[in-house]
Amino acid sequence: MKRTLSILLIIILLLPSFSFANPYEELTQNIRVFQMGIMGQGSIDLDKKISREELATIAVRLKGLEYLKDFQKQSTPFKDVKGWSVPYINIAYDMKLVNAVKKDFFNPNGKVSYGELLTVLMRVLGYENGVDFKKYPEDYYSKALEIGLGNLYIPHDEVVTRGIAATTINKALDLKMKNSDKELSSLQLNYYIDGNVTKKDSVVESEVYLKELSFSTTILGVFSGVLVGVNDFSRYKVVLLSKSGKVLDSKVLGINGSFSIENFDISTLSKLQGYKYEIYSPNGSLILWDDLD
């Protein structure tokens, strides 16, 4: 009898026509989401519920804005936010990717509903409150289904697990940004593979270029110039780095695109390493970069 049962079990497991729930199916289908570090570098925990602070972090990473956390102060407008998530929540809130639950409170440890996840991902894709959807959750849920992001079989009020989040993010990466031919994945500047961060090639915005470039490390470190090509350079960012990748300083630009970075490290070691610059558009895309000799 035992031998018969064993044989039957083996046959059932081998037959492709039988379907069994696989707790790691979501992982195998959405492995790039974890490889890219969008959901962190810790344990996978597909059944774990995600929190609002984690959703804010995911939004920042998807938008390609994680580099801004290094320039964020640890102050926050929210009384209940502290620790590692402060810069992520600040960035996500400032970029209108997430909302507060009420004045001065964000509820960072609160659970996330499927409708909330869809809403944040659609904001990342460029869809706007009051324009693309107005009434929550009906308009938001319908819009998500319309663009191919939502799953009709998941209720809008279902609490989101990391598995559901990974599946939905994976779909979002292949969707085009609103009014653009570029997919969301084009914003991903950093890929995390085997714990290492590597830069993804980015497309230069051909209409933007740098003129009047001045760079000196003779007596005082000075790097200045003017961006031209569009009418308003507000929130564009110039970052000065060593060629080893260490950020030395940065400037957020105003309308006219001019900038000056001074008093950066010009020690012998820094000079030996060399310098480079990177320029980012307001959505976090790397648009210009070059070495400074």
Rank of each mutant, 00 (worst) to 15 (best):
residue 180 S to A: 01
residue 144 A to V: 07
residue 23 P to H: 00
residue 108 P to K: 11
residue 101 V to A: 02
residue 129 N to A: 13
residue 252 V to S: 04
residue 175 L to T: 09
residue 46 L to F: 07
residue 192 Y to H: 03
residue 108 P to F: 05
residue 288 L to V: 08
residue 54 E to W: 01
residue 28 T to R: 00
residue 110 G to H: 00
residue 231 N to R: 12
residue 29 Q to I: 10
residue 67 Y to R: 07
residue 90 N to F: 11
residue 260 S to Y: 06
residue 37 G to T: 08
residue 198 T to F: 04
residue 76 T to F: 12
residue 204 V to R: 15
residue 269 L to S: 14
residue 65 L to R: 00
residue 189 L to E: 10
residue 151 N to G: 02
residue 241 L to W: 06
residue 143 K to N: 04
residue 259 F to T: 02
residue 10 I to T: 02
residue 16 P to I: 13
residue 34 F to T: 01
residue 156 H to W: 14
residue 15 L to H: 05
residue 242 S to F: 02
residue 40 G to Y: 03
residue 104 D to P: 07
residue 268 T to F: 10
residue 241 L to D: 11
residue 18 F to T: 09
residue 74 Q to R: 15
residue 50 I to A: 03
residue 113 S to P: 00
residue 67 Y to L: 06
residue 175 L to S: 08
residue 232 D to E: 04
residue 8 L to Y: 07
residue 27 L to C: 05
residue 3 R to K: 15
residue 200 K to P: 10
residue 100 A to C: 03
residue 163 G to F: 06
residue 269 L to C: 00
residue 112 V to G: 00
residue 139 D to P: 07
residue 69 K to M: 14
residue 245 G to H: 03
residue 132 D to S: 08
residue 279 I to K: 04
residue 95 M to W: 09
residue 221 G to R: 13
residue 156 H to P: 08
residue 231 N to I: 09
residue 133 F to P: 02
residue 87 P to R: 07
residue 100 A to D: 12
residue 186 S to P: 12
residue 230 V to R: 15
residue 13 L to K: 04
residue 293 D to R: 13
residue 144 A to C: 05
residue 196 N to G: 00
residue 205 E to A: 03
residue 181 D to I: 01
residue 98 V to W: 05
residue 98 V to H: 09
residue 58 I to M: 11
residue 99 N to E: 15
residue 146 E to D: 05
residue 41 Q to Y: 09
residue 195 G to H: 07
residue 21 A to V: 14
residue 256 N to R: 15
residue 252 V to C: 02
residue 50 I to N: 10
residue 139 D to Q: 10
residue 167 T to F: 12
residue 255 I to L: 00
residue 59 A to M: 04
residue 293 D to M: 14
residue 129 N to R: 15
residue 214 S to P: 04
residue 200 K to L: 06
residue 134 K to M: 12
residue 163 G to T: 05
residue 66 E to Q: 13
residue 239 V to E: 12
residue 230 V to F: 03
residue 199 K to P: 05
residue 127 Y to C: 02
residue 172 A to K: 05
residue 169 I to Y: 00
residue 156 H to S: 14
residue 117 L to T: 10
residue 77 P to F: 11
residue 258 S to F: 00
residue 158 E to P: 03
residue 220 L to T: 15
residue 76 T to E: 01
residue 7 I to T: 14
residue 39 M to G: 06
residue 39 M to E: 14
residue 56 A to S: 13
residue 78 F to P: 10
residue 113 S to Y: 07
residue 274 G to P: 09
residue 223 F to D: 04
residue 284 G to V: 12
residue 114 Y to S: 07
residue 71 F to E: 13
residue 44 I to S: 03
residue 134 K to L: 11
residue 279 I to R: 06
residue 13 L to A: 09
residue 282 P to K: 09
residue 285 S to C: 08
residue 114 Y to Q: 01
residue 88 Y to H: 11
residue 17 S to L: 14
residue 23 P to E: 09
